[in-house]
C-alpha cells in the first residue's frame, strides 16, 4: 500500500485490520467514532464481526470473550468510556487474555470536553481497575507511529497474554496525515495450550480465571503476573531521543505534546541553545533509565503534558534530586504552542 492521506482514527482501524484483527466490539463516544464506523463497514466483508455493544462495560467484556478464544480483538473508546472499561481491563489482565484497547483521550475529569488531552496517563499506567495489574501502554506521536504501534500492539498482547493500550491524545485521532499501512503478519503464537474452544485438540479442557480463594494461590498468581511485568520492563521499553545527548534543558513529553516540542527544539538549536528531548513511546514500561542518564548531564528537566502533571511523577522518579525538574502543562483541550515553549525554555536558560 502506498502512502495515503488518512484520518488518525481510520488509520488506526485499517492498521488493525492489516494486522489480522477481524473482530471489534465497541460503543460510540467522541472523538473516536470513526474507528467503530470503519470497522462496522469493513469487518463483515472479511469474514469477521463488528458488534455495537450496549455500553463500554459490555464492550470490554465482549473483548474479553473474544480474546479468550485466542482471537485478535480490538476495541476503542475515549476517556470516560475507558473508565467504564476499567473493571473489564482488570479481569482481562487477571485472566491473562490478549486484547488491544485504543484510548483517544479527551479532556476530563468527568464529562469534561471532547477536545484533545493527555489526562488519562495515571489511569492507563497506574491502574484504573482494581488489583495489581499492568497494561502495556503505547503512546504514538505521529499517525505513522499510531499505525505501527497498533500493529505492534497485537504482537505484544499475544507475547505477554496481556491487554495493550494505545494511548493516543485526541489529535492523533482527529488529524489527517499521510500514512503507509502494510499488511502485518506478526509473530505466530500458539494459542491452543491456553485459549478456550480447543478442548478437542488439546485433549483436556482449560479454565481462564482470576479467582483464587486460597491466599497462597492468589499470591502465586500475583507473583507470576509481576514477573511478566518485569519482563516487559526489561524487553519492551521504547523511546525516542531528540538532541538529548548534549541537552542543557531536557524536555520529557509524549504524544502530540512531544511533536510540538520538536519544533521548538529545532528553532532553539538554530539559536545555539542546547535543548533536547526524551520522548517515551512506551508509558508502561516507562523509560526510566534513559531519562535518568540524560538528566544527569542536563541542567534542567522540563516535563510537558496536556494535563496537570501526571507523567511528571515518573520523570521525577527517574531524575531524583540530581537535576531540577519543572512542569509546563495545559488542560481542558488546550495544547502548547511552539512559541510559548520557546519562551518557557528561554526563561529557564
Amino acid at each position: 500500500m502506498a502512502r495515503v492521506l488518512m484520518k488518525g482514527t481510520e488509520a488506526i482501524a485499517e492498521a488493525a485490520i492489516q494486522a489480522g484483527c477481524k473482530y471489534f466490539f465497541g460503543y460510540p463516544i467522541t472523538p473516536q467514532n470513526e474507528i467503530p464506523e470503519y470497522m462496522s463497514a469493513k469487518l463483515p466483508k472479511i469474514g469477521g464481526a463488528y458488534v455495537q455493544a450496549e455500553s463500554e462495560v459490555a464492550a470490554i467484556n465482549m473483548v474479553m470473550g473474544g480474546g479468550a478464544t485466542g482471537t485478535k480483538i480490538m476495541t476503542s473508546s475515549s476517556s470516560p468510556g475507558i473508565s467504564l472499561m476499567s473493571e473489564g481491563l482488570s479481569y482481562i489482565a487477571g485472566c491473562e487474555i490478549p486484547a488491544v484497547i485504543v484510548n483517544v483521550m479527551r479532556a476530563g475529569p468527568g464529562l469534561g470536553g471532547i477536545l484533545p488531552a493527555q489526562g488519562d496517563y495515571f489511569q492507563a499506567t497506574k491502574g484504573g481497575g482494581n488489583g495489581d495489574y499492568r497494561l502495556l501502554v503505547l503512546a504514538p506521536s505521529t499517525l505513522q507511529e499510531a499505525v505501527d504501534l497498533t500493529q505492534l500492539a497485537f504482537d505484544l498482547a499475544f507475547k505477554y497474554r496481556n491487554p495493550v493500550m494505545i494511548l493516543a491524545d485526541g489529535f492523533m485521532g482527529q488529524m489527517m496525515e499521510a500514512v503507509e499501512i502494510k499488511e502485518y503478519k506478526g509473530q505466530d503464537y500458539d494459542v491452543v495450550p491456553w485459549a478456550l474452544g480447543n478442548m478437542e485438540k488439546r485433549g483436556k479442557r482449560t479454565i481462564l480465571k482470576s479467582l483464587y480463594l486460597d491466599p497462597g494461590d492468589l499470591e502465586h498468581h500475583n507473583i507470576k503476573l509481576n514477573e511478566k511485568y518485569k519482563k516487559m520492563q526489561e524487553e519492551e521499553v521504547r523511546y525516542e531521543e531528540f538532541y538529548a545527548d548534549d541537552a542543557d534543558v531536557l524536555i520529557a513529553a509524549f504524544g502530540t505534546t512531544a511533536r510540538i516540542a520538536k519544533s521548538a527544539i529545532v528553532n532553539l538549536r538554530k539559536e545555539g541553545k542546547k535543548v533536547g528531548m526524551v520522548r517515551p513511546i512506551t508509558l508502561f514500561p516507562f523509560p526510566y533509565d534513559v531519562i535518568k542518564e540524560r538528566a544527569s548531564k542536563a541542567k534542567h528537566v522540563l516535563v510537558m503534558e496536556m494535563n496537570m502533571g501526571q507523567m511528571l511523577e515518573d520523570v521525577k522518579l527517574a531524575v531524583g534530586e540530581r537535576t531540577p525538574v519543572s512542569f509546563f502543562g495545559h488542560a481542558g483541550g488546550i495544547s502548547h504552542s511552539v512559541k510559548e515553549i520557546e519562551e518557557k525554555i528561554r526563561e529557564i536558560l
Binding site: 473482530y23 467484556n61 473474544g66 485472566c95 479454565i207 480465571k209
Partner: peptide, 16 residues
C-alpha cells in the same frame, strides 16, 4: 472449557 465473568457481565463475555 470455562471462563469466569465479572458480576453481571457473562452475556457480554459470551457474545465475544
Amino acid at each position: 472449557d470455562f471462563c469466569e465473568a465479572a458480576h453481571g457481565r457473562a452475556p457480554a463475555l459470551a457474545t465475544g
